[in-house]
Nucleic acid binder design. Structure first.
Length: 220
DNA sequence: AACAAGATTAACT
DNA sequence: GTTAATCTTGTTA
């Protein structure tokens, strides 16, 4: 639990680790929607990096043609998705990029939410070292491979329990984006999923809008 | 055993 | 707009 240091004219937000009650639930869409505006954190090599989640997609398990677990596929890769809520499902995409998901249901039901974008708020100097150039907070956190790159994550962090980990965890506060800024659209890069590719399972706030709201709220 | 496609990105032309 | 990067999985032989 960390309280940020706002100046006299700024509202102070109390951030609290999300517990298993938050992650765990029937409705993976609702969880994806609620993750927008929460804070993703890593503490790696004693360096803290954080970002406000601005884009997430729900993957609805064995009946969802876009999910790795469609049809009950249970392989070494998908095994983490079948575990309990709050674990991080991190897998290698296109042989190159590590993609971070939150597991959101009970053991045996492979629901997950893909974190597709964050707005960086802490440890930007660390993030610059990771991408090896100056950071553009609006652009560089937008994309699921970019999120893990900024946060220092790779597949070795797969199956981390985010409800207890001091390396990878998610926090909530009273901060919320304006409802009207949160859009829902079909998911990205899942054309192979037939009709399921059209489902509006993607939630996002434009990172430019997110920056304005975050500054207006006096978060950073 | 071989191959194609994938929840992507950066560097090209 | 095109392409190379390159690991896991499912399909075909």
């Amino acid at each position: 639990m960390v309280e940020n240091s706002g100046g006299p004219n700024y509202k102070s937000f109390l951030w609290k680790r999300t517990n298993v009650d938050f992650f765990s639930g029937e409705d993976v869409l609702l969880i994806a929607r609620k993750l927008i505006g929460m804070r993703l954190n890593t503490l790696i090599d004693n360096k803290l990096t954080s970002g406000i989640i601005t884009e997430a997609e729900a993957y609805a398990g064995e009946t969802d043609r876009a999910s790795h677990a469609f049809g009950g596929r249970r392989t070494r890769r998908t095994e983490t998705m079948y575990q309990q809520a709050g674990l991080a499902y991190i897998y290698l995409c296109y042989g190159i990029h590590s993609l971070l998901n939150v597991v959101t249901n009970i053991e045996g039901i492979p629901h997950a939410v893909l974190i597709r974008a964050v707005y960086p708020v802490s440890g930007l100097d660390i993030m610059e070292r990771r991408i090896n150039r100056r950071i553009n907070p609006v652009k560089d956190g937008s994309g699921p491979g970019k999120v893990t790159k900024l946060m220092g994550l790779d597949c070795s962090y797969n199956a981390t329990d985010m409800t207890v980990s001091n390396v990878l965890w998610i926090e909530d506060s009273d901060f919320r984006f304006s409802r009207r800024l949160i859009k829902s659209t079909p998911r990205i890069g899942v054309d192979y999923a037939g009709e399921d590719a059209l489902l509006p399972y993607r939630y996002l706030v434009d990172n430019q809008m997110a920056e304005a709201e975050i500054k207006k709220a006096g978060l950073y």
